[in-house]
Design a protein around this nucleic acid. Structure first.
Length: 154
DNA sequence: GCCAACGTTGGC
DNA sequence: GCCAACGTTGGC
């Protein structure tokens, strides 16, 4: 079982939006980066857990936990000319972009801000903390996962 | 295959 | 709004 961190801008789609979806489940569409695509297509498995990270907002940080409930399949927004994620180079038999479905698990008892995450030497090397990191999906080690979940009660 | 130009991400 | 970091594109 693996752990992940997935970014989303709360103004576009935040954890509260996920919680309000039917069955608290949504497809993670619109990822247009090959590294992130590969992780969704190849590596993310049913039952894996992921942090929901709010980016590009007043208080960027980890706000909750979600679970992979459907493994990689073609991102259909790439096929839709009316979608802002349309990609003419992604066609039916050779889809270029993939997504997974994720289900809301819970909010953290308190949001843990990026600013706070940076304070802990225990989290050195975590990908989200690297300068210039822009990848919207990153793997999280079990050690880092457990440490961060442990911060909830601090 | 190199690399400059350009676009996007995302913290601040 | 600024800007650093990085990915992609396209000319050569």
């Amino acid at each position: 079982m693996n752990y992940w961190l997935m970014k989303s801008e709360p103004e576009a789609f935040g954890i509260d939006d996920l919680q309000q979806m039917p069955e608290q489940t949504e497809h993670w569409d619109g990822v247009r980066n090959y590294q992130a695509r590969n992780m969704m297509r190849d590596d993310m498995k049913i039952g894996d857990l992921a942090f929901f990270y709010h980016s590009n907002c007043a208080e960027p940080g980890i706000v909750g936990i979600m679970e992979v409930v459907k493994e990689g399949y073609p991102d259909f927004t790439a096929f839709d000319p009316n979608s802002k994620y349309f990609d003419a180079k992604s066609v039916g038999d050779k889809p270029r972009w993939f997504m997974v479905d994720i289900r809301y698990v819970r909010h953290l008892k308190r949001p843990i801000a990026l600013k706070e995450l940076k304070e802990y030497p225990q989290l050195d090397g975590m990908q989200i903390l690297r300068k210039g990191n822009r990848l919207s999906i990153t793997p999280v080690s079990k050690e880092h996962w457990d440490f961060i979940v442990g911060l909830e009660n601090a």
